[in-house]
Amino acid sequence: MDLVLQLLFTGIGIGAVYALVALGFVLIFRATNVVNFAQGEFSMVAAFLMVLLAVDLEWPYWLAFAAALVGMAVLGAVFNLTVYYPLRHRTYLPVIISTIGASIFLANTTLALYGPQPRVLSGWFDNPGFTLGPVYVDNQYLLIIVVTAALVALQYWFFEHTLLGKKLQATSQDKEMASLLGIRVSTMIMITFVYSAVIGGIAGILVAPILFVSIQMGATIALKAFAATIIGGFGDVAGAIIGGLALGVIETFGAAYVSVPYKDGFAFLVLVAFLIFRPQGIFGERVAEKA
């Protein structure tokens, strides 16, 4: 039982990381109908920004955090203008390739600027964690779970109760209709990219104290987050969160009770099962009949 509780906590913690990154995928997918293969690199770049500001330049942690997020907002905007926007009228394939190119570019530019050594970024808390009954609670995981929950709540409020949120929703559902209603679709897409980059950045900075800051950190998480997105149903925010958490838990328990080396395989087996038997995901709507 102790074992189960500990695995559950860890699974939810790692799942929350997937969920955070998956959130960025979903937002961009809903706004543009393309998958951003560079989403993981947003997390990586933000973590390196944080190392630069908080560790190398020794800024206060909160200031560095705020500045890193501003940096991510700028990156999101530039990304939209160079990688997505010029291709907006083309099919999804060129956009996929373009985001793959961007991912190679971001990873290796960071490498060129920062060198290959992984770095340590301390967490928000001085104290690494505490024991709660039989379970060791890692403070950073706890923070990630809390922040993910808060972001989801915030996002729900934003989309359902603000005008901008509703405009964004309208844009993601039907671009033509939205533009007929006088919504500036390009502005909405810009906001989406900026927000996704910031969310990806938050995920990267939060997870850095656990996984360390390395060039590869983005790619590893992004692939899992991707799977989470599918499991949850592409284009559904709640689905991405549940998908992420489910994946984290399945993976952790799979590793504990089936096989550690095949741990990464569980994510994809679950994914394939979903795609074959329930392609609409846990929450997604039925794939519309084409006519």
């Binding site: 695995l7 996984l211 952790t252 504990a256 550690v260 080396p261 095949y262 741990k263 990464d264």
Partner: peptide, 11 residues
Amino acid sequence: GYANQSQDFTP
């Protein structure tokens, strides 16, 4: 055994 670039070693 474990696969490289594992994010978690709790199990």
